[in-house]
Design a protein around this nucleic acid. Sequence first.
DNA 1: CGCTATGCTACAGATAATGTAGCATCGTGC
DNA 2: GCACGATGCTACATTATCTGTAGCATAGCG
Lengths: 108, 108
Amino acid sequence: MAKQASSRSSGVRGSRTGRPIMALLDLLGRRWSLRILWELRDAPLTSRALRTACDEASPTVLQARLSELREAGFVGLGEAGGYGLTPLGRDLCETFMPLHKFAERWRK
Amino acid sequence: MAKQASSRSSGVRGSRTGRPIMALLDLLGRRWSLRILWELRDAPLTSRALRTACDEASPTVLQARLSELREAGFVGLGEAGGYGLTPLGRDLCETFMPLHKFAERWRK
DNA sequence: CGCTATGCTACAGATAATGTAGCATCGTGC
DNA sequence: GCACGATGCTACATTATCTGTAGCATAGCG
């Protein structure tokens, strides 16, 4: 593979390019990443509530994405139980919030 | 030729929910989707130039994503050759353009 | 024709996701 | 002091998806 070995659990594709946008695009371009951030947009959820919100996605991926997102500093696990956005994660979420309006306009 | 991308059940996951944001989130949350839109952000590219820009991703997925994005109306294939954003696609792209600035701030 | 470039496809091997089941832990009530 | 229900998280076989390489048909150019 011409890529890199670190696309394992913690590596993000494109991080070696020095262009953080590539790393971010790859991280967000994984299954359920965007959806998770979206579902946490206004309130923390327990892992199971999140699973329900995400159309019963399998806990395996959810857990994987949650770990990546936590490692990236977007999501945190509160001691009261439940996953929630960090301040950074909230910023990110607001960054693509206009997507909602766009989607309504799109409506294919 | 008919699109082979639309052979995929009902297209985009979440479209049956009636919430277009879910369909959009799923479409953009597939590998290389965001990256493709990003690479086309300011100029059309030929399929091979796009492949180069996308770190030599395999043509199979690229072609699949391109078909989906074309079907969604975000990307078009100009008769002069090369893929480019449609007006709708350009809107979408601008929607998550602030991501760039966010990524710079993120820099993990 | 020979050459190069385009969009696009085939296909085997590798990787990631799905679906179901289950574990260890913690707090509640009993 | 122990069933209980809920939590975060994992195992694992099956299935879907991606990767990497090769190649096809077509078109423009000399």
